[in-house]
Write a protein that binds this DNA or RNA. Structure first.
Length: 430
RNA sequence: GCUGAGGUAGCCUAGUCCGGUAAGGCGCCAGCCUUGAAAGCUGGUGGCGGUCUCGCCUCGGGAGUUCAAAUCUCCCCCUCAGCGCCA
């Protein structure tokens, strides 16, 4: 949620920023917020005056009670006010509801450095690392895993549907090794690991995500006010809902460990079979609560951490500055890291790194303060993938695939696999 | 799931039976005192406003009764405790 005070004081600045998204709906929402708000403020003045009269009469009645009871004239006068007040109050509440509903749908204000673009094809490359490998005669990662007996897709689809998978054998250890490597790396940099709830109630969830996600992305638990999390970013952001964070203790750095559940996984494209797009995947996430002035610097820190992890895995990648059409409603600025998939001869997204500024924190009612006293300012929240293991495994299987189909273990992961250098087919598989 | 106790300002608590417009403490801020600090004393300290020595709002949420609701009635939400179930 953007700052209502800013909308009141510098509406042209807000409008100019929203213009950059070139979506007329957002300008309409802003106009609605402004008109409902000024109408509400005018009406509130009226209501305040009526309430003042009512309070004054009530005081006189209270005095008259001890002096032998109020006169009939006084009672009649007092009775007339609630009727008039009710009409004004009903309208007042309606305006407030409409204003806030519109405000909740206004997207975050964009950072100046976000490029204009209509969709992800217009994201701007800002960095690149490593030598993209040629395709050779590699198998797509899904087929390779199946051939090694390390994944079951058909059986998973029969019991859970498309978008699900079984992993089995040594690839599971590789998954755990990736997790552990990322956790160790981040703990050395001051991050605290957290296993959050994997389900959230609706109200806190509305604080962290686009309202449209409730229909498109999240799984709802039937008969309960609970949603499966789409990323650990969400429960981490909601952790301090309604609280006051001591500004002396910021930034707070967390590592989120969770499975993530998503209804929408897209579809078409080459090499669809596999674990690149799934309804369920594991992710190690970086998350930070920061002071407003520190968030741009910390955003770069998150990006640098994610880049370093992929460099340690020796996986070529590039970084894009995500354009207006792809940045979403919550982030003010976003980088994606796209790893090189040699079989597809394409860079594909493996990391998403966002500075959400005060948008989530304000929706969640998180404030900053000193010594427990609330201040005016709202902290910033930032999040970035460290390693989403499914996608990292997919790119490792392509990148490290040997002519005989086996998978070389990246050097940096070997300590986590007891020194193991290679993953080979499971001869005993059924 | 059952039973009970609760939800009051940044925090803790009183007020609820019996309706009259949030008392007190902690913390924080300022002043006094002090070489300095602590202690002590005095004052201030929820939100909003276009009228700012004024006004309105605020007691988990909503609806109702009333001239008037933290207080009475109804519905809902949440937390804790005990019991039940359970890896």
């Amino acid at each position: 949620m953007i700052d209502l005070e800013l909308v009141r004081k510098e509406p042209e600045k807000v409008e100019e920023n929203l213009q950059r998204r070139r979506n007329p709906e957002y300008l309409r929402l802003l106009a609605e917020v402004r008109s409902k708000d000024s109408e509400w403020r005018a009406l509130r003045k009226q209501a305040d005056e009526l309430r003042r009269q009512r309070n004054e009469l009530s005081q006189r009645m209270a005095g008259a009670k001890t002096a032998g009871g109020p006169t009939p004239e006084l009672v009649a006068e007092a009775k007339a006010i609630p009727e008039r007040l009710r009409a004004v109050e009903d309208r007042e509440n309606e305006l407030l509801r409409d204003r806030d509903a519109a405000l909740m749908r206004v997207p975050n204000l964009l950072d100046d450095s976000v490029p204009y673009g209509k969709d992800d094809s217009e994201n701007v490359e800002v960095a690149k690392w490593g030598e993209p490998a040629p395709p050779g005669d590699r198998m797509p990662h899904g087929d390779a895993l199946e051939a090694l007996g390390m994944a079951e897709f058909d059986r998973a689809h029969r019991v859970s549907g498309a978008g699900f998978y079984y992993l089995r054998g040594p690839i599971v250890l590789l998954d755990l090794a990736l997790q552990r490597m990322a956790i160790d790396f981040l703990m050395e940099r001051g991050f605290t690991p957290v296993i959050p709830p994997f389900m959230l109630r609706r109200e806190p969830y509305e604080g962290v995500t686009d309202l449209a996600d409730f229909g498109n992305v999240m799984y709802k638990i039937e008969g309960e006010d609970l949603y499966l999390i789409a990323t650990s970013e969400h429960p981490l952001a909601a952790l301090y809902r309604g609280e006051i964070l001591d500004e002396e203790r910021l930034p707070i750095r967390f590592i989120g460990l969770s499975y993530n559940f998503r209804k929408e996984i897209g579809g078409h494209g080459v090499d669809q079979k596999g674990i690149f797009r799934t309804h369920q995947f594991f992710k190690i996430e970086q998350f930070i609560f920061s002071r407003p002035e520190d968030s741009p610097k910390l955003h770069e820190e998150l990006r640098a951490n994610a880049e370093e992890l992929f460099r340690r895995l020796r996986i070529p990648y590039r970084v894009v500055n995500v354009c207006t059409g792809d940045v979403g409603t919550v982030a003010a600025k976003k980088y994606d890291i796209e790893a090189w998939f040699p079989r597809q001869q394409a860079y594909r997204e493996v990391v998403s790194c966002s500075n959400c500024t005060d948008y989530q924190a304000r929706r969640l009612g998180i404030r900053m303060g000193k010594a427990g006293k609330p201040g005016k300012s709202v902290p910033h929240t930032l999040n970035s993938t460290a390693i989403a293991t499914s996608r990292a495994l997919a790119v490792i299987v392509e990148q490290y695939q040997q002519p005989n189909g086996s998978i070389t273990v990246p050097d940096v992961l070997r300590p986590y696999l007891g020194g193991r250098k290679e993953l080979v087919a499971d001869a005993a598989r059924i």
